[in-house]
Simulated scan of single mutants.
Amino acid sequence: MEHEFWHARWKHQEIGFHEGTVNRYLHDHWPEMVQTGTETVLVPLCGKAKDMWWLYDRGHPVLGIELSPIACKDFFEEAETKALVQPAQPFIRYIHDELQLWCGDFFQLVPDDVEHVRLVYDRAALIALPPKMRRDYAEHLTAVLPDQARILLITLDYEEGAIKGPPFNVADEEVHQLFGEDFEIEHVLTNPLEKDHPFAKRRGLTEGVESVFKLTRKD
C-alpha cells in the first residue's frame, strides 16, 4: 500500500477505521501495562485517535507517528488545542506539551527517536497493513524499540474475503509468527465482534473477533 492510498483516504475522509471515542480495550487493559504511570507511549500509525488524549491526560508523554498531515492537523483542531509545528526531515513534528505527533513514514523511525519509549499502543497499525507490510512493520518496530518497551496490541480477525481491508484480518497465529521470536505473548482477551458494533454495521461484517495481547520482550 503506497503513501498515496492513505493520503487519498484522509483527503476524502474515508476513515472508517477512526473510532471517534476512547477504545474500550485500552480503557480496560491499560492499567495492566503501567508501572510508573509516566512511561512514554508510542502510538504507531495513530491517525487522529482520541486514545492519545486519554493517555496524555493520565500522565503519559505520548509520541504518535502518522503519515497524513490532515490527520495531524485534525487531531489538534478537533480538541481546540494549538500545536507548535516544527518542519524537519524525515518528520514534521506537531508538539503540544508532552504530546507529539510526528508526520511522516513510520519506517523512517530510528532507535534514537524512541529510546525513551517504554510502552506501545497498537490498535490500528498492524491491522491497517496487508500481509507483507505487516511483516515489515513488526520487524521494524522490534528493531527500533528499546528492550524495556512493552506492547498492548489489539487485533481483528474475520473470515478471509468477508470485507476488503483495511482493516485486514489478523489471526492469533500470525501475531505469534510476527512477534513470538522476540516477545513473550500473553493473549489477554478474545471478544466476538457484536453485530451492532458501529464498524461491523458500516462494513456489513457479520462475524469477527477482536483480541487483546500484551507483548513483553524476551530476556
Results as ranks from 00 to 15, higher is better:
E2C: 06
H7N: 11
R9T: 12
K11D: 15
K11F: 12
E14S: 14
F17K: 00
H18P: 08
E19H: 08
E19K: 11
E19N: 13
E19P: 10
V22M: 02
N23E: 03
R24Y: 13
L26S: 01
H27V: 07
M33G: 07
V34M: 01
V34Q: 11
Q35P: 12
V43D: 10
V43K: 07
P44V: 05
P44C: 00
L45Y: 09
L45A: 04
G47L: 04
M52S: 04
W54K: 01
R58W: 08
V62E: 00
L63P: 14
G64D: 05
G64K: 00
I65K: 02
E66L: 03
S68Y: 07
A71H: 13
A71Q: 11
A71F: 12
K73L: 14
F75D: 06
E77P: 13
A79I: 02
T81F: 04
K82G: 07
L84V: 08
L84F: 05
Q86P: 11
Q86K: 03
Q89K: 10
Q89E: 11
R93C: 09
R93P: 14
R93M: 06
W102P: 02
G104Q: 02
F106R: 02
V110Y: 06
P111V: 08
D112S: 02
D113I: 02
V114K: 00
E115R: 13
H116C: 05
V117W: 09
R118V: 00
R118P: 14
Y121W: 06
R123H: 12
L126Q: 10
I127V: 10
I127N: 03
A128Y: 09
P131V: 10
K132M: 04
Y137G: 03
A138C: 01
E139F: 07
L141R: 08
L145H: 11
P146A: 00
Q148N: 01
R150I: 04
R150P: 15
I151S: 05
L152D: 06
I154Q: 10
L156P: 14
E160V: 04
G161H: 13
A162D: 13
A162W: 11
K164E: 14
G165V: 00
V170W: 03
V170A: 01
V188A: 07
K201W: 14
L205K: 08
T206L: 05
E207F: 13
V209W: 15
